[in-house]
């Protein structure tokens, strides 16, 4: 058998990507059309309806301030949804056993799932970015920085989705993180306002909220506006991604939610 150069089963890893892309393309409306339409509506509402009545924030029109946050929320949702449903359904229907009985390593299984997460999030993000550029609702200050935030955040939430996919025993549990963690924290993470706009006693909540660094980072890459030194966001996000990867690798090695 070929495809295992350098000890890595590249063909196996690519097969997971092919399988998940095939699964994703069975629901293109859910995967891509829905977030793009949602972003288009935000551009319309904040750009033309509400935006005209709100003075600029940080020296930029309101829609330019808000759109990076909207984009980041879509990256988070796309990446979490992709990996959590992939893992949960493969456990629920037991076809995860196909990979368990194969000579694939745990890191190859995780990397295959993460690659699809990154593809889905990047396509979603680029679609929203292009819409924003077409309507004059945003700019791009740094493409490498923009791509860093898309890839790094999608990896973090892809890994979080894997954890929830392994842990869930029902469809209900699959939504727990989204309802009680992702949605509330992203809403108060600086999508619609700066930290300065919050009452002083509430500002610590923003600084302690990881979503703040993600939204602030991608906003900086798009419109050049930032409320923290760039290194803080890059450092925090990179460390979080590595810690999450090691955690998921540990869960796979222990067979958590995978093996009987």
């Amino acid at each position: 058998m070929s495809g295992t150069k350098s000890g890595i089963n590249w063909i196996g890893l690519y097969t997971i990507v092919r399988r998940e892309v095939s699964r994703m393309m069975r629901v293109p409306i859910q995967a891509f059309i829905a977030p793009w339409i949602s972003a288009l509506l935000f551009i319309f509402i904040f750009g033309f309806v509400v935006g005209g009545r709100i003075s600029s924030i940080g020296g930029v029109p309101y829609i330019r301030f808000v759109l990076p946050g909207i984009l980041m929320m879509n990256i988070v949702n796309a990446s979490f949804l992709q990996s959590s449903t992939a893992i949960y359904f493969s456990r629920f229907l037991r076809f995860i056993e196909e990979t368990l009985v194969s000579p694939m390593s745990y890191s190859e299984m995780i990397a295959g799932n993460l690659a699809v997460v990154v593809v889905r999030s990047t396509v979603t993000a680029i679609g929203i970015l292009l819409m924003g550029l077409a309507f004059g609702a945003t700019t791009v200050q740094s493409i490498p920085a923009f791509l860093f935030w898309v890839v790094a955040v999608s990896m973090i939430f892809g890994l979080m989705g894997i954890v929830i996919g392994l842990w869930s025993k029902s469809f209900e549990q699959l939504n727990v993180l989204t309802v009680f963690f992702i949605t509330p924290l992203s809403m108060v993470g600086g999508v619609f306002n700066t930290v300065e706009m919050l009452p002083p006693w509430l500002r610590w909540l923003a600084w302690a909220n990881p979503f703040f660094y993600f939204i602030n980072g991608i906003r900086h890459s798009m419109i050049g506006f930032s409320e923290t030194p760039a290194a803080v966001g890059y450092g925090f996000t990179t460390i979080l991604a590595v810690v999450m990867f090691l955690w998921v690798l540990r869960l796979y090695s222990r067979g958590y939610g995978l093996r009987e």
Partner: peptide, 10 residues
Amino acid sequence: DWMGGYFGMA
């Protein structure tokens, strides 16, 4: 085909 892929078959 996917199973063959997991086994590293070209």
